[in-house]
Design a protein around this nucleic acid. Structure first.
Length: 484
RNA sequence: GGUCCCGUAGCAUAGUGGCUAUGCAGAGGUCUGCAAAACCUCGUACGGCGGUUCGAUUCCGCCCGGGACCUCCA
């Protein structure tokens, strides 16, 4: 099916067509591994995940998906330095005299945490072609900086290398993703001028001069040797080029990255490699928490670990987020996740029922597939896709459907779930009931048959204490584990 | 200050110039000794005030409220 996607470059929804027929190359701005990512970050990665899955399943493409790991920047360096409050000696070991090693220990730890987090919300590692670490692509970044410099769009000042934006703007467009008011931008950026020693206040740093106690590499530029480390934007340009080739098809990230990060990435790549970065730029909106901006000061700043501590199932969070379109602000609420949990379960129950009892009704599974997939293909409209699914479920009770329709539906669910990723396409799991509980239940059943309801209820209490609930049927009873 | 977005029934999320939405919660029902589960049925909502229109929740203006970006941030 043809995919349509909103492209920030054109500010319109466009028909998607990969550069190379049949294969989509996609780059997602990944995490900076200096701490736990928060649920806003997770939304961004989840949006990228849904996009790549829709491209595979609905679009029928092969997808080469890359997500970078930023393991060197101001914050990772800050938090890995001696005396850092963020240092966790129990998991990172003692700090060493080597800033490189300290950085490595900090970032590798948080990288592991990150991998666990994304796995928990249903992002499959095997869907990712690569997760490159910035520190492992320093030579590629150096080469790009040198190219930019040779092309006349970079200069050295105070041991750092800056992108010469005024030179670039004279001949090239700037502000492709974001309406940049250059006048305003320049004056507004003056605050940073001292800090970054920029000759042109609007120029951004490609290579930061070495500071005492920080990790560093030697950048050779002509006859100069510049010890330092890469600026923030350069890593994505270099890694995208190395791993996907330019221009690739889709670049994703949060809306905040449009400017300056992505805008500068475009300028750098064009200035160095002489070609555009990506055909499609896809940006997801932020989320709020209980109607407010998520911020540490408001105390509503959540990491996945925080949610787990509150007993939430990460897949419920995944499902809840799919209830909102990726381009709209999503209001994350605990009520919302609870509602998502019930809704997700209802579908799961439907899937189980499809495998347990049949009827005579038929249904048009192909039409359902077309409806649901068309919504997903139309700029990833997950809320409408799910609404279409629920409308169908409401109109077609699972147990009334004929076997062939049920088989077709299960096949459809299998396919849908390879995008949504929150269900189990399998028969209802058999519950292992401890012998003791089974005995209690049998006693209760007999008491009930003798209409000794007081005793039956008392036994039910005991069974509940063992963690099971009894559900009576006309001809027997079921034992199900009580949740939480 | 500049640029922009949003305000939909109890909660959340879609959408539309006239046909009224999806989930959760809630109400009623089937079933049950009672429950639970499952299933069935049920809700004319679109911030306020004006304007355009035969008709606006949907278009325009103003106001109120919330939020984003411009600066590290998904």
């Amino acid at each position: 099916m043809e995919i349509r996607l909103y492209n920030t470059l054109s500010r319109t929804i466009e028909q998607f067509e990969p550069v190379e027929a049949g294969c989509v190359r996609m780059y997602s701005c990944g995490p900076t591994v200096y701490n736990h990512v928060h649920i806003g970050n997770l939304r961004a990665f989840l949006c990228a995940d849904i996009l790549q899955r829709v491209l595979r399943i609905v679009g029928g493409y092969q997808v080469r998906w890359v997500m970078n790991i930023t393991d060197i920047d101001d914050k990772t360096i800050r938090d890995s330095q001696p005396g850092s409050a963020a240092w966790k000696a129990d998991v990172m070991g003692a700090q060493t005299a080597d800033p490189h090693e300290n950085l490595r220990r900090l970032t590798r730890y948080y990288e592991q945490v990150f991998l666990h987090d994304i796995a928990a919300i249903g992002i499959r590692r095997e869907d990712l072609f690569a997760m490159p670490r910035a520190t492992e692509y320093i030579p590629a970044m150096m080469e790009l900086i040198e190219r930019i410099w040779r092309n006349g769009y970079a200069y050295v000042a105070g041991g750092s290398v800056y992108f010469d934006l005024s030179a670039w703007i004279r001949e090239h467009p700037y502000g492709l993703l974001f309406a940049v008011d250059l006048e305003h931008f320049v004056s507004g950026a003056r605050i940073d001028a001292d800090q970054y020693e920029r000759e042109e206040v609007s120029d951004f740093v490609l290579w930061k001069a070495r500071k005492e106690g920080e990790p560093w590499w030697d950048l050779v530029l002509g006859d100069q040797v510049l010890p330092g480390r890469p600026g923030w934007h350069i890593e994505c340009s270099a890694m995208g080029h190395e791993l996907l080739g330019l221009p690739f098809d889709i670049h994703t990230g949060g809306v905040d990255l449009r400017f300056p990060h992505h805008e500068d990435e475009i300028a750098q790549s064009a200035a160095g490699y002489g070609c555009s970065t990506a055909r499609f730029w896809v940006h997801n909106e932020f989320l709020e928490v209980e109607g407010q901006k998520m911020s540490k000061s408001l105390g509503n700043f959540y990491t996945l670990a925080d949610l787990l501590e509150r007993g939430l199932d990460p897949l419920d969070v995944r499902y809840a987020m799919l209830g909102a379109h990726y381009q709209s602000v999503y209001n994350f609420t605990f009520d919302g996740v609870a509602a998502a949990r019930r809704a997700r379960r209802r579908v799961q129950e439907y899937i189980y029922q499809l495998q347990e009892q049949s009827g005579r009704r038929s249904c048009d599974v192909e039409k359902l597939r077309q409806q649901v997939f068309a919504e997903l293909a139309d700029n990833l409209h997950t809320p409408k896709a799910l609404a279409a699914l629920f409308t169908f479920i409401g109109e077609h009770p699972a147990v009334e459907l004929e076997p062939s329709a049920q088989r077709a539906l299960l096949e459809f669910f299998e396919q849908l779930n390879s995008i949504v990723g929150v269900w189990e396409i399998a028969p209802r799991p058999l519950v292992v009931v401890p012998e003791r509980v089974r005995q209690l239940a049998q006693e209760r059943w007999e008491a009930r048959l003798q209409r000794d309801f007081a005793r039956a209820d008392q036994l039910r209490q005991q069974i509940a204490q063992e963690g099971f609930a009894v559900r009576d049927r006309s001809d027997g009873y079921d034992l199900v584990p009580v949740e939480e």
